[in-house]
Design a protein around this nucleic acid. Structure first.
Lengths: 199, 199
DNA sequence: CACAATACTGAACATTCATTCAGTATTATA
DNA sequence: TATAATACTGAATGAATGTTCAGTATTGTG
């Protein structure tokens, strides 16, 4: 690898790391390019040399995070025998992961602001759709092997995403054990419901 | 009542209505005073004559909305015989409501954003806790009258809020019928789960 | 070495936006 | 009617900030 390429990679990482940390601390809007300039020691222009925009930088961080999740899950998935175990495993992972990734706070703020350029909306849509597809595949698997009721899989995938997304909001005000318990309970409910007389 | 008092009341309502609509549509930060000026036809100065600040205006709307929700629900609740019916009724109401629930999104954004004065933080926290308490009471009722499994009510109240909050995120990209179906399905799952073999 | 490509600088630009305030219009009061 | 109180205007302010760009430094290449 070139010294140039090496330099670029290093700088990009430096900016990404600082930005991630700032976004996590202060949120998306409250983090200015100036903040990242101060944190990295490199110029504003340099940030724009490596990333198209503030939005682009943030999306890069989210997508990077997702890539990491995919990789981790690919390994983690193998240790679970059933789909139900996988669901609990996923819930546990998300509960613990989110504790170390307060970036979700900024992500939520970012996703909730509506005035985005069409290409940004598109990237967000792809990201969200990725979560849904992931859920759908997992649920379909559970239906195929008779663990789950055959049902509206697409709808359930959205329900599951909603549940996890919403829970993430609340978990930010929870301790580790409380968060874990909440995620477990969420999966209990998702799987068995709360009504007294079952079908 | 005075013509002055009448005028004040009318203007305040006009500003509040426009602001509520804008905040619900665009979110808190993305809505500017200028937007409200355009929507109402009155001046920026006038908005500041009637409301202390943008923050103050927003908090006024949230608290106003809570009062209204309490009132509406008090009436609406009576038409449902069982707790389960109430849950479906609430889900339907939230699915169809075009204004109040989107405001929760703005409220969430508002709460998550950069540092607020302690009194503002406190006011928002009370509001969020109010939603949880509402859920808890509803669920406790269902447990008391044998409709729901006796369980960790506080935890379930958070699960329910998570589910509804997360679903609201998705419903932004849905049509009316799709939204209704999603909320109904969410309640189905919340009540009965998706696992094949029930307890 | 010469020239091109890449990496980077940082001041300047352009825009957004909450808030203020001096001043005007309208209404109440005595 | 005179004056005080209230309702309102809208331009100005000032601060924050994403983005650009002309220019410089460093590295690759032939």
């Amino acid at each position: 690898m070139n010294k140039k390429q090496q330099q670029t990679e290093q700088t990009k990482k430096k900016i990404a790391d600082a930005a991630r940390s700032m976004f996590a601390q202060k949120g998306y809007k409250a983090t200015s390019i100036e903040d990242i300039v101060k944190a990295t020691g490199c110029s504003a222009g340099n940030i724009y040399y490596h990333f198209k925009s503030k939005e682009g930088l943030f999306l890069y961080l989210i997508e990077d995070w997702n890539r990491e999740w995919d990789q981790t899950w690919l390994v983690k998935e193998k240790q679970y025998a059933t789909t139900i175990d996988k669901l609990y495993g996923m819930a546990e992972y998300l509960a613990l992961d989110q504790l170390s990734h307060p970036l979700t706070k900024a992500a939520n703020e970012f996703f909730n602001n509506s005035e985005k350029a069409p290409d940004v909306e598109e990237r967000i849509h792809v990201i969200v759709q990725g979560y849904i597809d992931f859920n759908r595949q997992l649920l379909q698997q559970g239906i195929d092997n008779q663990e789950l009721e055959a049902a509206n899989v697409s709808g359930l995938a959205i329900i599951l995403d909603s549940l996890l997304f919403g829970l993430n909001q609340h978990s930010r005000r929870m301790e580790r054990e409380e968060t874990l318990a909440a995620y477990r309970l969420a999966m209990d409910v998702f799987l068995h419901g709360i009504a007294k007389s079952t079908r």
